[in-house]
């Protein structure tokens, strides 16, 4: 048997060099993505690319404010990702609410609901700042401190408790069933 732990530094080096991003843009930071991806700031030279499937993605960019409705989708998408997974939060809104500090429909602390590895402050951070955050994340991956996915496993009860407090118990099933009565018009008429 090969002890794969021996190869862990090699794997970490490879992970750092091929971060695929979930194409899931929340809030206003989605507009910072096109210049970041295209020729001006060209992220692809770091081996990063936006990817439509969360099953193949490593990095989750939270680009801006998060509403509770989006947070449900974020949590589900985050749990769909395979295991070394990293979260990078843009801007002040996921950090502490930002300008939405007194708004009823924006999350104040994202790291209560999912673990966040790197937070970039600013409103909005420029692409240079995002690239700086990504560089930081790469360093953290290489020396093994980007361990959000491990923290999510170990402290799942705490995260789940916070999620349930916000959305109410059994929110996943309720959300899945929410539109059923309105989609089935025929059945409604029979009643």
């Amino acid at each position: 048997m090969v002890d794969w732990r021996l190869f862990e530094p090699l794997f970490e080096f490879a992970r750092k060099r091929s971060l695929w991003i979930v194409a899931f843009c929340t809030g206003c930071g989605g507009i910072e993505m096109p210049p970041l991806m295209t020729s001006r700031y060209d992220l692809e030279r770091f081996g990063m690319m936006p990817n439509p499937a969360p099953r193949m993605a490593d990095l989750f960019l939270i680009t801006g404010y998060v509403t509770p409705k989006t947070l449900k989708r974020i949590i589900i998408t985050y749990e769909m990702q395979p295991d070394p997974k990293y979260v990078l939060a843009h801007g002040s809104c996921p950090l502490n609410g930002g300008i939405y500090w007194d708004a009823y429909n924006a999350i104040k602390h994202l790291d209560r609901y999912i673990p966040v590895d790197v937070v970039i402050a600013g409103c909005m951070p420029r692409p240079e700042a995002v690239m700086d955050g990504i560089k930081k994340l790469m360093e953290m991956i290489e020396n093994g401190t980007a361990d959000g996915w491990k923290r999510y496993r170990e402290n799942y009860e705490w995260y789940k408790k916070n999620q349930d407090e916000l959305f109410g118990e059994g929110w996943r099933e309720r959300e899945a069933r929410r539109w059923i009565p309105w989609l089935m018009d025929k059945k409604k008429k029979e009643k």
Partner: peptide
């Protein structure tokens, strides 16, 4: 709004 936000997000000191 403020009372609702306090209640919903359980943040008081801010």
């Amino acid at each position: 709004m403020l009372a609702y936000v306090k209640k919903k997000y359980k943040i008081l000191d801010r």
